[in-house]
Design a protein around this nucleic acid. Structure first.
Lengths: 419, 419
DNA sequence: AGCAGTTAGTTTGTACCTCGCACAAACTTA
DNA sequence: TAAGTTTGTGCGAGGTACAAACTAACTGCT
């Protein structure tokens, strides 16, 4: 009676409406932790430790988690029987002798994760393996100003095309979307340039059509999660993802949890002020970070300085031209990275996360841009003894990071990592 | 065998070294939650719900926490027998009839909390009742540049004088200190103007002398905790405390937890940049928030504008003079509050906490200053539907809020609110 | 006055979780 | 071959929350 279609250890519901349970808050302000919740939490933590640290024996996991070996056995055994985990070949013994350990890791044939990237006019879907490998990519376009039914039809068709390429059903579907997202309620609030999506309860729709758990979050947060599970943020407990491009955005991983803020806001860094009464921003205010560290500023400055083809200037191009000996490019790159640094400095002074992963245009500048930014940040931040700031780059094709992040959203909610 | 000198439900150890347990991290990155920890967590949450919501019956608590009534009974009964809680008189029945509820609340005769406020040259100690009432205040001075042993002697004497005024031992001792504090290790890193404190492992010292659990944190964080337990932040899950004066500082309460950042840094808002290449700051950088929203700026501007007695200008005085009809005061007040607002705006864009409690000079300006700041923030922040920002003032004598906060630190760690 | 209906709090039994102990299995070293 | 070491597994103990069923106490209707 241990193995029905539902695994006995119930990592995450396969049914819809898991969202309400996950939310927890029931009008009051505190919620007690029940036994079963505790079990789910601990099972999730074991899996996360396994994921972050690579194949590990039961004994290692016990040491890592600071618990009894028997506890790990109890947690892990049903997962092995359920084919989620597999036992590797015995690794050589310790130098002092002893029974050789049997490392555990995720079964390569375990279910994958469904991922959707939703940008104005385009849908991209794929399957992501637990290793981060991306498979069965399907792309489609939709009319941003069209009919809701039409959009849902395209969405369903695209996702079906992807999902049908796998034997077994995925653990769930993660959606990364541009615009303002209410991740608590699973609805898209507004997307500039794609009015058809306004107010769409996408999670409910997809859960109903595919009978799988569905999660949604906005684009920068997906990048963050992608970093956490499959990128430079793997295994880290505190870091921020920073996106630069036509707009600026960010998201934070704090104390092992994605920070969402109230109603999923938070991380709207582009419109923090770095220049009181500075240049006018798209948002109607003055001196936003976005006015000095996004691509429009870069194009403007390139034009002002007389650089060639200022309209298509990017960080990557500046780095290349600077390497080829252009002083103007070098100078502009320095000012650009310094301006980007100010936003990171303010983040550092506020949250002191110490680690930052760059995405978008500035990530195109690679290690050179990252190093310049790091130097500027170091200069502009108040030093604390023993504090080291690291700036990393996620240079993977941007769509892929977001897709992996969408998959990571599923992983996070499936592993019940949020208490 | 249920009631030894130790209560059977073990809310927090009375012995030292509880700190190591609380820290949890054991080299690895995840730690499983054990049953007993779960019990402590839930007991803490019940007490917190009780504290935040005032006297409540078992049934109400169960509804509030979303658990079974029997669970609440099980949690609450030993505490009643242990005299921590008491059962009030039966309150009138529901309109539909039914057995009248017996509200529970904290026993007024329950142990108190020891509190210490440590500023350069002065020590202040007191006892704080669970109601927030402050008793047995003792003050002393010490030589900031003197001998460590001498300081410890003064400290011990002062604290002893306070503690001896209570029949029963307090739950623990909380210390709020100026300067840079490593709250994880319980040591003072550095205090400008008081070199004698540099590197002092104060928590270990006090735990050894008084055999009580001791916690320490820095001043802004104590203000935050004071707000959370005894001030306008009571019952809130997300808010920030902002301190203005000769310097600026802040601290955050995020998702029901005090945010500390790595090694207890975080919240160093004074040196976030609001004016790229702006005025030179004490810290050696340019355009820090502190250069436009702290008292030195205010004095400077007052002098520049020819206001009377510019060296002693405060927010409180500006409000008074503005109310008496001074246009210059009105104008300067507006600019001052606008400058303060920028820091809050950046915080809001980053963390989206929505609630802010003011302390220090600007709190002296009372509701008028708060309302001005609120208006500026509203204007400068990117609006999100349904989002309302509130600016509150904690006008209690500043020392008292910090002392209550120090006591609140004990309460937080005693109630094991951090998972 | 008596009874049904409603709510509060308790008793009892059940299920779940982690832990410590003891033990078999498997390997190294001497 | 014997001793030492490490891994992984039963088993019982202790702690925790929950559901069902019960008693207590009050309201309102007849």
């Amino acid at each position: 009676m241990k193995f029905e279609s539902q695994p006995s250890y119930s990592l995450g519901q396969r049914t819809p409406a898991s969202r309400e349970v996950a939310a927890g808050e029931n009008g009051g302000n505190v919620t007690l932790v029940s036994q079963s919740a505790l079990g789910a939490i601990n099972r999730g933590r074991v899996l996360q430790a396994l994921y972050d640290n690579g194949p590990k024996s039961r004994a290692d996991l016990a040491r890592l988690a600071g618990v009894n070996r028997t506890t790990i056995t109890g947690i892990v055994q049903p997962m092995i029987e359920d084919q989620l985990l597999i036992e590797g070949d015995a690794s050589p013994s310790d130098i002092k002798g002893g029974k050789p350990a049997r490392p555990l890791y995720f079964n390569p044939d375990a279910p994958m994760l469904g991922a959707v990237l939703l940008l104005p006019g385009t849908i991209q879907t794929c399957l992501v393996a637990l290793t981060g490998e991306i498979k069965a990519v399907t792309k489609a376009e939709f009319d941003s100003h069209g009919d809701t039914e039409a959009f849902i039809a395209v969405m369903t068709k695209t996702l079906t095309a992807t999902l049908s390429q796998s034997q077994q059903a995925p653990f769930g579907i993660g959606v990364a979307s541009a615009g303002m997202i209410d991740s608590d309620n699973g609805t898209i609030l507004t997307v500039n340039l794609a009015p058809v999506l306004t107010g769409l309860p996408l999670v409910a729709i997809l859960e109903e059509r595919f009978s799988l758990p569905v999660v949604i979050d906005h684009h920068p947060r997906a990048l963050l999660v992608g970093d956490r599970w499959f990128g430079p943020g793997r295994g880290q407990q505190n870091f921020a993802a920073v996106y630069t491009g036509e707009v600026l955005g960010g998201a934070f991983f704090i104390d092992g949890k994605v920070y969402r803020g109230l109603a999923g806001s938070g991380g709207e860094l582009g419109h923090s002020v770095v220049q009181i009464d500075g240049a006018l921003c798209n948002c109607g205010k003055h001196g936003c970070w976005e006015t000095v560290a996004a691509l429009p500023w870069l194009r403007n400055e390139a034009a002002r300085m007389g650089l060639p083809h200022p309209k298509s200037v990017t960080c990557a191009r500046l780095v290349k031209e600077a390497d080829e000996g252009s002083n103007e490019a070098e100078e502009l790159l320095d000012r650009y990275t310094r301006n980007v640094a100010f936003g990171i400095v303010n983040l550092q002074q506020t949250l002191s996360l110490n680690s930052y992963v760059l995405h978008g245009d500035v990530a195109g500048g690679g290690m050179k841009a990252a190093e310049l930014i790091r130097q500027h940040v170091e200069q502009l931040v108040v030093k604390r003894p023993g504090q080291e700031i690291s700036i990393m780059v996620n240079g993977i094709g941007e769509g892929h990071t977001a897709l992996r992040g969408a998959a990571g959203l599923v992983l996070s909610s499936h592993l019940k990592l949020v208490i």
